[in-house]
Amino acid sequence: MISTTAASTAQQRRGLKRFLRHRLASLSIVVIVLLVLSAIFAAQLVPFDYRQPNLLELFLPPSITHWFGSDDLGRDVLSRVLYGGRVSLLVGILAALVSTTVGTALGVISGYFGGWVDNLIMRFTDIMLSVPTLPILIVVGALLKESGTPLAEFFARFGAAKNILAIISIIVLFSWMSTARLIRAEILSLKERDFAQAALALGARAPRIMFSHLVPNALAIIIVQATLGVGRAILIESGLSFLGFGIQSPDVSWGTMLSRAQQYFLIAPWLAFFPGLMIFLTVLSFNYIGDGLRDALDPRSRA
């Protein structure tokens, strides 16, 4: 245990090397950084107001002025795609962070304590995994929005942000399970390893063992799960929005853009093409990064 610091620094360096060797993963990092920057600086980058209709410019195909064309209200699609990225990325990243945290916490508790605690949590995980998620998400979505229900009142406090928060919450609700299962399995095996046994023998308390010893050692899996989770969350958000249960105007997400584009895809296919492409690129990049991280952090799982 004394030499861990030195060893882990070396390990980290090796990991970084391995990650950089994964060329697509490195490229994906660049793509994501660009996307995040363009979302943050959308206001400075966009040539047009993304909310401003222009009745004289309905359904313009891509051109020099409107790179991605214009939409059913004459709004600039490029501007909307950039702003849409804000919501989609925010929802994706936050939902993945929270669901990974929840999944990790439950997995660690379940794996560490075992017995009835483990049984209870894993039963609950089974139940959640047996629920067809998308239909239930729709029901919960309706519940969250309706005035009068306690959940809706809770979210109403957040004012303008309530829709985005509600979407994030329902995605989290149905996406922590796989992390919980993986972490539990990892903890079960880590628990038997020397360092954990040693800590236990030294009389360390449960929370300390869990969070200072077990969690750091499972970090590789947690980081990979979180990265892959971003892509999953973005896909869920787009699916929900596509079915009409997503973000509300004037906020815009790639999913809501696609949902509307459906109606006009015969005369304006670009309306569906660009937001879909952005979802695809983003999710693809996160998946590559996740893959690269897995290679880098966890050499055993290399295929």
Partner: peptide, 14 residues
């Protein structure tokens, strides 16, 4: 990777 990253409904529309 493309297959697991593409939104199903978008692929359908395409």
């Amino acid at each position: 990777f493309a297959g697991i990253s593409v939104p199903v409904f978008w692929l359908g529309m395409l």
